[in-house]
Amino acid sequence: MSDSEIKYRMAKTGKLMIEILPDRCDYCGCCVGVCPEDAIELKEAEIFIIDPRCTNCAKCVWSCPIEVIKFNKEGVQAH
């Protein structure tokens, strides 16, 4: 693992808690722009969180204009 990968893992509180509801996503990229960890992959009509990088900081949740990114305390299945 690279240093940055180790940093990502350490910053994580355990499981991934950020969930993108892909069926409702508009693929606008607000979340990608504010993500401090480059942890969101966005193609033309495909989006997912790169689990090992995500620190559950929730900035993407706050920046989603149409409320399709949720903070799920129970943890979510990684892509």
Binding site: C28, V32, V34, D38, K59
Partner: peptide, 18 residues
């Protein structure tokens, strides 16, 4: 665009404050 990642991969600081 707003979702830019290319600059980031090149080592530039492109992340935007939420």
């Amino acid at each position: 665009g707003v979702e830019s990642r290319v600059g980031r991969w090149a080592g530039l600081k492109t992340h935007i404050d939420f």
